[in-house]
Structure formats: C-alpha cells, structure tokens
Design a protein around this nucleic acid. Structure first.
Length: 934
DNA sequence: TATCCGACATGAG
DNA sequence: CTCATGTCGGATA
C-alpha cells in the first residue's frame, strides 16, 4: 500500500482495527522529494526488486511514503496513540537526514537507518545469498560494490594460486586481503602518507614514496607482466621497500597476480572506500573470503539495533545523558565537568570475548567518539576556541577474543577503518585530525577460544603506576598520552558481545569439555547449561578480579527459562552479581536472507547493588527495583523441577514415546486398510500429541499388548512395521534404544494406564492463544510424548490448567519452543502453587471446567479455532472469565490488578511454600506489592 | 512466507 | 525409568 499523503495514511490507520499482525505498514519511507524510482514503482513500471534486492517485497512489506518533514509527526501519531504491548508491527524506518526521536522508534523490530543506506543494508546481505545477482541501485550501495569486487579479487587470486587453499595458506591469503583492503581504504582517506609511512619515511631518509596503493600497484603490474611466474619478484610482503608501516609486518606471503586479479584490484581501488560502513564491513569481508561460512556468518551477524540493545543500556545511554546535560551556570565548573567527562571517556575499555569481525567493538568505538565530539564541541563553545586536544579514545582499549583467526584480523581492520572515519569526522568538526598511532596499535584482538582461557590474558586488569610514560593501553598503565596517572578505580571495563549459542545437549565433546572447565566448582549440573552460559560465568570470574566491570551479552532466551534457570543463575546472582538491565525475549533479526530462527534476550549485569534496574519487553521500558533470572521484576527465586506436586495436585505423566521412526504410527491415508480388517483393527488405537489435540486431527497407532504378539505378527503389514521398528532401534547408537529392539511391537516408552478418561495437556501451544489448551479425552486414547496426561483425574484440574494464573506460571517458569508455550509436568505442574481448597471450592472449579467444556462443544471446531485470539466466541470467553474469577478468588479475596500482580502473587506463594526446603526465610521483598510490574 | 507445532532421539538425572 | 531440549525442521495456511 502506498500512500504519499500523511493525513490520509494516518486516518486510514486510525480507522483500521489495531491487530498486531494486520498493522498496515511495515515500512515507512520518508523522502524530501520522492525519487524517480519510487514513482516508477508506484506506477508499476519498475520491478520493486530492482531497488531493494527483492528482500522487502518478498517479505510482503508494505510501504508508506511520506514527506521527510512529516515523519516525526506521523510517527508520534501512529505510535503514540496505537502502540501497545502486543504491537509487533515492523517499522523499517528510513529517513534521509531527518532526526527521529528515539522513543518513537523503540518498537521491537525497528530498524532505523538513513534512507541513503537502505540499499547498502539490504544489498549487503544479498551477497550472502549470491551477490553476483545483485544489481546496484541508484543509491549506490558502496558496500555491495566493494564486496563484489573484493570477492572477484579474492576468487581470482585463489584461481591463480591454487596451492593457497590449505588452511595456513588460506590464512596468509586472508591476511594479505585485509591489508590490501586497508591500503585501499587508507589511500582514499589521504591519511596514509604522513602516518602509515612514518617509520618508512624515517628508515629511508625521507623517501616516503607514493601512496601505498600506487606502490602496490606498480609491483603488481610488474608481477602481472610475468603472469604465473614469480621470478625475482618479492615473495614476502616485508620485502616491499616502502610498505613497512607495520601493516605488512610478519611473514605475509604475496600471492601471484593474474591480469584479472590485477584489473580487479585496480577496479576495487577506484571505489570511494571512505564511504564504507565500518560496522558491517567486517562481516562482509569475512563472508567474502570465507566461502565455507558465508551462510552461517550471515545468519548470525548481529544487527546494529541488537548491538545497541547491549551497548546503550550498559553504558552509552548514561554517557550520552551526561554529555548532553544542561550546562552548569558557572563556566569554570562546567568546563571542569566536561573535562572530567572526557577523562572518563578515555578510561573506558570495551571487551568483546566473542568479537567475530568486531561489530560490537566498532559500534562502541564509533559511539564513544561521537559522544566525545559532542563534549569537545561544548567545551569549545565555552572556551571560544578549538579544544586543541586530540581524541583520547584509543583503539587499544578495545579488546576482543575471537576463535577464527581471520575474523580476528578482520576485527582489527574494521577498527582501523572506524578510527580513520572517526578521525575524519573529528577533523571536519575541529579542523585538525588526531595523530594516527602506528598501525600495529589496533584493537587488542586475541585469536583464541574464549571459554578455554582466562580472560585476564586477553584483557589484563588495569594497574596503576607512578611514572609518566606513553602507554600502550590502560591495562598496563596509564593515560594513553602519558600525562595523567590512572587510578585503578577509574578504569571502567564493559564486556559485551553475542557469543555462540549451542544448546546444552548439542555441544560437541570439545565444547562440553570447555563448559566443564568453566563451570566446575560452581555446579555439577553444568551439562544443563547452554554454551553461551559459559560466557556469563567467565565474565563473572573476570569481574571478581577486575574492578568496575559490567557486562551484557545477547543470549538465547532458553538461558532464562526452565531447567537452566536454577542451574546457571544461582552461580551468578549468588556471587554478588545483579541484573542491571534486560531485554526480554525478542526475535533474532538481521537482514540476512536466511535468518537464524532463534529467540534472544539481552542480559546486563553488574556488582552495584541498589539503584534503578531497567527491564525492556518489546517496546516497553520499565524502571524496576530488581530483576530476577526469569527476567521478571521480582526477587530471586528459582523454580526447581519436582517429581511430585508441591501442592495437592494429581500426578501428571509424560506421554508415550513411540521411538519407532514412524513405523508404529498410522497415517490417515493408511488407516482405512487397518480399520477394514476386523483383526488388524483391534491393534489400532487413536493417538494424540499436541497437534492432534489442538487441531482435532484423527491419528492412529499400533498398540499391541504382550499377550497378542503372535496374532499381530500374523498380519503382514503389522509384521513389516514391527520389523522396521526393530531394525531402526537396533541401529541406534544409544544402548537404551537398542535394548528396545527386543520389543519392537510396542512403544519405546510406555506410561499409558487403563482409565475411564484422560486429561491431556499438549506440550506445545502457540503464544498467541490466551489460554493453555487442556482436553478431556476417552480412556482408550494413547497420548504421545508431545503431550502430558492425567488418568481419571478430577475435573477441577482442567479449571486450574485453563486458568490465566496457570498460563502465566507456565510462561514464566517452563521452557519455550521459540516463544510458544511449552508445558512441563516437573517444572510447571508439580511446582504450581495452589491454595488449599475446600470441597465447595472443588465443586465450584469443577462446574467452571464443565462450563468451559460445554462452551467448546457449543462453539464446535478444534481448539485452534475455538481459541483463535482474534475470533473467540463470547460463550467461551465468558466461561473462561468465570473460571479465572473462581480460580483467582482462591488466591486473593480482592482479585488482581494485572498479570504482573498475578505472577508476583504466584512467586510469593511459591517462595512461602518452599521456604522450609530451601532453608530460607520468605524473602521480605516478597512482601512488597507488584507495583510497576508488566 | 510466517505460523504453529512435531519429531526425534539423545543425554542425563 | 523420566523427560527437557533444540542459532531446529517440516508442514500448511
């Protein structure tokens, strides 16, 4: 939908019923003057994919085009009045030179960037899918062009040097490539001659030579003349007489250049390299030169908004606030304040122990430099002249650990590029650029495995010294400019990053061994902890040694759910760490064509107690007094698995697991054959898992009692299926499965019991559903391992499970499948705190349950249809409302104000009920209400 | 193409 | 003997 008139757009949106998934616009583009391309698209004369690479349109995003000057008003009206907690609308907000207030674009999926970069951002990811197909847009996506040319260069070099394919050779090639890229970049910025060659100039008696690319070009030209022959050409980069600013130090071998490679290099050198986006460029280079990982690198590249979810609340927001605080009336005091802020900025260290190609570090560096410029500018306004000082934010205070050697090289490169770009901005603002350090002083990026080492090796603790000297970094001493002593306590270290996520049960042996090393001594249940949890533990250890450490990582949300919570979080929270801020579950999003299907959280921790804590949930932001491991604004409490109910609840069993490779299950197309046979039909039973229960699907399985084996085997089709099951089980690497091969005629795990009726709770259910599904089924039904079952349980259990209270508990305490509810008997049912009930209470709940079942029968259809959140029948709504009232009246005479209130009550009750076994008094904080809870 | 569940068996208690 | 788990995976609307 394209609407250029903002008033019309707003009124249309206002008139539309606000349903999250039907929000009419995903993409708001603002133009000062709509470019011709948009007009052509609107008129249908240009294929939309030509300007955006097809990404947007493949996702069926809708476009609202409005005038740039109106974007703020439009957003205020759209978001201000309509934003709700459930809003999931995606705003790909593109503006050109228009400032948009941050609060307006706080929506979960918002991506915010200047329109001129639109092509870049989308174009950049197309290379991951096959960027040769990419057609450059009018907006000149320089990153993509650069990527294309570098890839061609790289491929040409590989083709010319087939022996470079080995690991070591490949690494040499990668080193060479990153240096080449830097040469092109630096040459373009014009900074190279006086700084990069400083040493060379000295060594060669003032013979600075020409700009680096010219030097290289001439050499390559000579090489290309002797195509394929090395002859007497330099073999090592260190042999280049002028190329010796440290950039080509070490044993970097020079690959042979073909004419094609040479031509590609000169083409690439012709681009405007200083317009490259340093933040994403690192990922791009990595993708280009590392074809084996093109796919996954793209998938796992952390988008800028997600990086800022970590950096902003951790330290940038605070610094920005400080930098833009209204001036003190007294000029000299204001000057002192600003200078103190500059000093503070110079003493900040950022450390990413899973830095990849350095995106977090680059963004952090850029943002700090921006803040510094702002402060310097204010200082200039007071003193009336240019500050006369260079940037005090030094690359060597940016630390990283990266397991891939090439990514580590790329991270250094990206930091150089970021520095040059920031220096240029500095020069534009203040007329002169800070001096460049020798290039060897890049970020402190260590190539290694972060979990396998003590982080102090990669990012040493700051120490104080008395003498003045120029120091390579804060870790070993003082102010980088040697003018000031650095006192321990003043150095701030922020650990950030997006470590790899590998499920606790999905690690390979090496990774498991790492986790054991990291977690041993804290818990013996470390096998339950996701790989990313290891980073939290390492960060904790680091913060025990180094003062002023705060850290925040992006992680899978499973870290804050289910089993992992009582295992991992006590380690952290009982070692005097506290959660300073957190982003609750959000979908992983970047612009890669194939996104990782993962749900993330961001958790930031510190050792400062008290003070405000910030909890982000979608586009909601809450200041709270405490955040627990479930990322709820409640005191710490861990819900441990139980094997029997805490309260008086009937047992609930895990369903029956076929372990059959599908052979014991009968598909709908096959059921006819069985049912038409009077003998075979006696071996068939209906089976339900989550899907069957929720969508009312009929499905069947073979169910053969021990005493009827012979009879069953006499039927050829059944015999065939049993044999297939046996073969399958016998071939398993798991001893337990192999032993089941002896009884291939029955399910691998059987917990079914004879019963009159079974209450079935599907294990997975959509998060959109307002209540958990729970069904009353006849006793002959077999329940699969995708559901839980209670045999002949009283009806009032349905009332409890179907209540809002229970849903909230399950959501908070159990694991998740993506963001959907995942039921668990041990984590959710047996732990569910229920008040003691009278006979009258039971009766009342039973009648509520009956009413729900009756309403369902009346409404008809499947659970999925009945509980469609957009279309729930009033009868059913009423039945559930009455049920909720009945259940909640058991807990509280005066009812609850909000879900936060309900959840707080449940946690409080749980804490009380388990106080004895936990050997603790009831946490006094639980006496507080749940004010402020979401 | 997004949503909604499912399998699938593994590992660990 | 039990059951949570998945930088998942498939099916389907």
């Amino acid at each position: 939908m394209y609407i250029s008139d903002i008033d019309e757009a707003v009124s249309r949106i206002a008139a539309a019923p606000f349903v999250a998934d039907e929000f009419p616009f995903d993409f708001i583009a603002a133009y000062d003057a709509p470019p011709a391309t948009i007009t052509r698209i609107r008129n249908g004369t240009q294929n939309a994919s030509d300007i955006d690479g097809g990404v947007l349109w493949r996702q069926k995003l809708h476009l609202l085009v409005c005038d740039a000057g109106q974007i703020n008003e439009a957003l205020a009206r759209l978001l201000g009045s309509r934003a709700t907690a459930t809003q999931k609308a995606k705003f790909l907000l593109a503006t050109d030179g228009v400032e948009v207030a941050a609060h307006d674009i706080d929506a979960e999926d918002t991506i915010f960037f200047p329109f001129s970069e639109l092509g870049n951002r989308f174009g950049f990811f197309l290379p991951l899918a096959g960027y040769s197909r990419y057609k450059a847009a009018d907006d000149n996506p320089i990153d993509v062009k650069a990527a294309n040319r570098l890839r061609r260069l790289y491929d040409a070099l590989i083709a010319e040097n087939p022996e470079w394919e080995g690991d070591a050779k490949r690494h040499a090639m990668n080193l060479f490539m990153t240096r080449i890229i830097f040469c092109m970049f630096a040459e373009d910025t014009g900074i190279i001659p006086e700084h990069l060659f400083a040493r060379t100039i000295h060594d060669h008696g003032g013979h600075a030579g020409e700009e680096m690319v010219h030097v290289l070009t001439s050499i390559f030209t000579a090489m290309s003349i002797r195509e394929g022959e090395r002859g007497d050409m330099p073999r090592w980069a260190t042999d280049f007489p002028w190329v010796n600013g440290g950039l080509f130090a070490g044993d970097i071998e020079v690959p042979r250049f073909s004419r094609t490679a040479f031509r590609t290099l000169t083409e690439a050198a012709g681009l405007r390299w200083n317009e490259i986006n340093a933040d994403i460029f690192g990922s791009m280079i990595q993708v280009i030169v590392d074809p084996a990982h093109r796919h996954e690198t793209g998938m796992h590249y952390t988008s800028v908004p997600n990086i800022l979810k970590v950096l902003d609340p951790l330290f940038l927001d605070e610094l920005r606030t400080e930098a833009s605080r209204p001036a003190l009336a007294d000029n000299s005091r204001e000057k002192a304040r600003l200078k103190a802020l500059l000093t503070r900025l110079s003493k900040i260290r950022v450390f990413d122990p899973a830095c990849g190609s350095g995106n977090f570090l680059v963004i952090a560096y850029q943002e700090l430099r921006k803040i510094e410029r702002q402060v310097l500018d204010r200082l200039r306004a007071i003193t009336g002249h240019a500050p006369g000082i260079w940037s005090h934010i030094e690359l060597h205070n940016f630390y990283g650990i990266e397991i891939s050697d090439f990514a580590a090289e790329t991270a250094k490169l990206s930091l150089w590029i970021a520095k040059f770009q920031m220096d240029r901005a500095h020069r534009d603002m203040f007329g002169s650029a800070p001096p460049s350090l020798p290039l060897t002083d890049s970020g402190n990026i260590h190539n290694g495995n972060a979990l396998a080492q003590d982080w102090l090796g990669a990012c040493p603790a700051p120490i104080s010294v008395n003498h003045r000297q120029k120091m390579p970094n804060l870790a070993t001493a003082v102010d980088a400019h040697g003018t000031e002593e650095v006192i321990d306590g003043e150095v701030e270290t922020y650990i950030v990053g997006n470590p790899p996520y590998i499920g606790a049960r999905k690690m390979n042996d090496v990774q498991k061994a790492e986790m054991r090393t990291v977690a041993q001594g804290y818990t013996n249940k470390w096998t339950n902890i996701d790989y990313v949890g290891g980073w939290f533990i390492r960060a904790m250890q680091y913060s025990e040694t180094v003062p002023n450490v705060c850290f925040a990582f992006v992680a899978t949300n499973s870290l804050c759910q289910g089993q992992q919570v009582p295992t991992l979080w006590p380690i952290l929270l009982e070692n005097s760490l506290a959660i300073r801020f957190a982003h609750r579950s959000f979908k992983w999003i970047n612009n890669a064509p194939k996104k990782a299907g993962v749900i993330c959280v961001v958790v930031g921790m510190d050792r400062v107690h008290g003070g405000a804590r910030t909890l982000f949930d979608g586009n909601l932001r809450q200041e709270v007094s405490t955040i627990n491991a479930y990322l709820l604004p409640l005191p710490n409490i861990y819900i441990d698995e139980r094997t029997a109910a805490l309260c008086e609840l009937p047992p609930m069993d895990f369903g029956n697991m076929p372990l059959d490779n599908g052979n014991l299950l009968i598909e709908p197309a096959e059921i006819e054959d069985f049912q038409s046979d009077p003998v075979a039909s006696t071996f068939v039973r209906p089976i339900v898992g989550s899907k069957e229960a929720i969508r009312s699907i009929d499905r069947y399985c073979l169910w053969i009692e021990d005493d009827r084996i012979a009879q069953a085997l006499a039927i050829p089709e059944i015999d065939r299926r049993i044999e297939a099951t046996r073969v399958f089980r016998a071939g398993s690497p798991r001893p337990q499965t192999r032993s089941k091969a002896r009884t291939p005629y029955k399910f691998g795990e059987i917990r079914q019991r004879n019963a009159d009726h079974i209450i079935v709770v599907p294990s997975a259910s959509s998060e959109r559903r307002p209540y958990l599904p729970v069904l009353y089924m006849p006793g002959e039904t077999i329940v699969s391992n995708l559901a839980f079952m209670m045999f002949d349980a009283p009806l009032w259990t349905i009332s409890l499970i179907a209540s809002r209270m229970h849903l909230l508990w399950i959501e908070a305490v159990c694991g998740k499948l993506k963001t959907d509810y995942r039921y668990s008997n041990t984590l959710g049912w047996y732990t569910f705190p229920v008040p003691s009930m009278s006979q009258a209470d039971y009766k009342r709940l039973e009648s509520c349950a009956e009413n729900i079942l009756l309403a369902r029968a009346e409404v008809g259809g499947s659970i999925a249809e009945q509980y469609d959140p957009n279309n729930m029948h009033q009868l059913l709504i009423d039945a559930h409302t009455a049920n909720d009232e009945a259940v909640e009246s058991l807990y509280s005479g005066r009812g609850f104000r909000s879900d936060g209130d309900r959840l707080g009550h449940l946690f409080r009750r749980y804490a009380k009920l388990t106080a004895d076994e936990r050997g603790q008094e009831v946490d006094p904080e639980f006496a507080l209400g749940m004010e402020g809870a979401a």
